[in-house]
Measured scan of single mutants.
Amino acid sequence: KWTITVQGEEAIKWAIKVAEARNLDYTVHIDGDQAHITIE
């Protein structure tokens, strides 16, 4: 299990796209213009 933090709307969209493309189980916690994405 690991967490990445991305900043900015484009980076958030990209990170989610990558997680979905790899069929990963993930949760997103949005904090202002940052998102913390935890991959199970």
Rank of each mutant, 00 (worst) to 15 (best):
A35E: 01
E20A: 08
W2T: 03
I30V: 09
G32L: 04
I39N: 01
G8A: 03
A15E: 02
Q34A: 10
V6H: 01
I12N: 01
V18R: 06
Q7R: 13
I30W: 13
V28D: 00
D33H: 08
N23R: 10
Q34G: 09
I12L: 13
Q7A: 08
K17A: 14
A21Y: 12
K13V: 06
A19M: 15
I16P: 00
K17P: 01
V6W: 03
H36N: 05
T3E: 05
A35V: 12
L24H: 04
T27R: 08
I16W: 03
D31H: 10
K13W: 11
A35L: 07
I37S: 01
D33W: 08
E10R: 12
R22K: 12
E20Q: 11
Y26M: 03
V28L: 11
A21C: 14
T3W: 08
G8V: 06
V18S: 07
E40S: 14
A15K: 02
A19F: 15
L24Q: 05
I4M: 07
E9K: 10
T38R: 06
W14D: 04
W14P: 00
H36E: 08
W2R: 04
I37E: 00
A19R: 01
V18E: 13
Y26L: 04
E20K: 11
A35N: 03
A15M: 11
T38C: 06
T38P: 00
N23Q: 11
L24F: 09
I12M: 08
T38W: 06
Q34H: 12
Q34L: 14
K13T: 06
V28T: 02
G32H: 05
L24V: 05
Y26A: 02
R22H: 15
T27W: 10
T27Y: 09
I4E: 00
A11W: 12
D31C: 13
A19K: 02
G32Y: 03
E10D: 11
T5D: 03
R22F: 15
E9M: 12
I30Q: 06
H29Y: 13
E10K: 10
L24W: 15
A19Q: 02
I4K: 01
V28A: 03
K13H: 06
T3C: 14
W14K: 06
I30G: 03
V18A: 10
E9T: 11
V18L: 13
T5S: 07
T27G: 03
Y26W: 07
D31F: 12
A11K: 08
I39Y: 11
A35F: 12
V28Q: 02
T3Y: 10
E9A: 13
V18T: 08
K13S: 07
E9Q: 11
I12G: 01
K17I: 10
K1E: 04
T5L: 09
W2K: 03
K17Y: 11
I37A: 02
I37H: 00
A35H: 04
V18H: 09
E10F: 12
Y26R: 00
V28I: 14
W2H: 03
A11N: 12
D33L: 08
G32Q: 04
T38E: 06
E9H: 11
E20D: 08
D31T: 09
Q7P: 02
H36A: 06
N23C: 14
E20V: 10
R22D: 06
I16E: 02
K1D: 04
I37D: 01
G8K: 02
E10N: 09
T5R: 05
A19G: 02
T3V: 13
D31L: 09
D25W: 14
W14S: 04
T27V: 09
I16D: 00
I37N: 00
T27I: 09
A21S: 12
D33R: 06
I16N: 01
K13Q: 11
Y26N: 00
R22C: 15
Q34M: 14
I30S: 04
D25A: 15
D25Q: 15
G32M: 04
E9R: 10
I37G: 00
I39Q: 02
A19N: 01
D25S: 15
V18D: 08
T5W: 10
T3Q: 06
G32R: 04
D31P: 01
I16R: 03
A19V: 14
W2I: 06
K1L: 07
N23W: 07
Y26H: 02
Y26E: 00
I37T: 00
T5H: 09
N23V: 03
A35R: 05
H29V: 15
E20W: 09
E40V: 14
I30H: 07
L24E: 03
V28K: 02
G32W: 05
H36V: 14
E20L: 10
T38Q: 06
K17F: 12
W2V: 05
K17R: 12
V28S: 02
I37Y: 02
D33A: 08
I37P: 00
H29F: 13
A35D: 01
I39R: 01
T38M: 07
T5I: 13
D25N: 14
W2L: 06
K13I: 10
V6R: 01
N23A: 09
V6G: 02
V6S: 01
V6Q: 01
A11G: 07
W14L: 08
H36M: 12
I12F: 08
A11T: 05
E10Q: 10
D31V: 13
T5Y: 11
A21Q: 11
T27D: 04
A19Y: 07
I12D: 00
L24N: 03
T38A: 05
A21E: 14
T5K: 05
T38L: 06
G32C: 07
E20T: 11
G32A: 05
D25L: 15
T3R: 09
T3S: 07
E40H: 15
I39E: 00
T3H: 07
E9W: 14
